[in-house]
């Protein structure tokens, strides 16, 4: 008798993202323009770019929260025909008006035991606060809870919109560790950040966005040592991109 092999997270399980001339126009202003990217690598894809570049809008489109007005996109496994569980951590945390642990439970599709929920809180150092009203957490704590909530849904594809924007240095490292861990378990992350150091620590490839357009999409090593575009150079040098 042959025992079936346990599924392993090999290359074919990594979700990939492809867009074709994706565009978004709201009330006459073009916010995303002609975006064509292929993301096929595992690990963390960083999205960088100045304020208002359209980073949040792009991942909201990809996550299915906003319908693009032009072009199309596809999210799939290399092996086709499966829908992929996705999750998103919003730039501005949205928490329900209930306790910290109840917020986690609300998102839990897998009916975890209470201990599992508590472990998830422990992972973002929120265990002592589990019975507090979530809306009374500090900004950084709310972000950590948002991440725990996204992870509890066991996504294969994780969109992160500046999840460490208001965290202290220690918390940033905790979060980065969690995301690396998820990566190792086969979770693909798309991560928006303004923190160049963080992008270097986490990114396998970088999408640089400016004024609604993809200026470049290269592997992280190249991007940080030898960016192709003038805009990316200026951005990395801390000059304002106009």
């Amino acid at each position: 008798m042959v025992t079936p092999k346990a599924p392993t997270s090999n290359q074919s399980e990594i979700p990939c993202i492809g867009t074709m001339n994706l565009g978004l126009t709201i009330r006459g202003s073009t916010l995303l323009n002609d975006i064509s990217i292929q993301v096929t690598t595992p690990g963390v894809t960083m999205i960088l770019g100045p304020n208002g570049a359209g980073k949040s809008l792009l991942i909201k489109c990809l996550h299915g929260l906003i319908a693009p007005t032009r072009g199309r996109f596809e999210i799939g496994l290399h092996q086709r025909g499966k829908t992929i569980p996705q999750a998103m951590v919003f730039q501005k945390p949205v928490l329900l008006r209930r306790s910290v642990i109840d917020n986690l439970q609300f998102a839990d599709r897998h009916s975890h035991q209470r201990e599992a929920l508590e472990r998830a809180l422990e992972a973002v150092s929120l265990l002592e606060k589990k019975d507090q009203p979530a809306t009374q957490l500090s900004g950084g704590e709310q972000q950590r809870l948002s991440l725990a909530r996204a992870l509890i849904t066991k996504p294969k594809l994780l969109f992160l919109d500046e999840p460490t924007a208001s965290l202290d240095p220690a918390s940033v490292l905790i979060i980065e560790q969690l995301i690396k861990q998820a990566s190792q378990q086969g979770v693909k992350s798309v991560f928006i950040s303004h923190d160049i150091g963080q992008a270097k620590r986490l990114g396998s490839d970088v999408i640089f966005l400016n004024r609604g357009q993809v200026i470049e999409h290269t592997d992280a090593a190249t991007f940080f040592t030898n960016p192709h575009s003038r805009e990316a150079k200026a951005y990395l040098d801390g000059e304002i991109v106009l």
């Binding site: 909201k60 299915g64 929260l65 996705q86 999750a87 998103m88 919003f90 949205v94 329900l96 998102a107």
Partner: peptide
């Protein structure tokens, strides 16, 4: 406030309303 979150979490209408 909740619309996008509920879309993201794939919350169905009855659960959304009770929430």
């Amino acid at each position: 406030e909740y619309r996008e979150l509920f879309l993201s979490l794939n919350i169905q209408l009855p659960k959304a309303i009770s929430t």
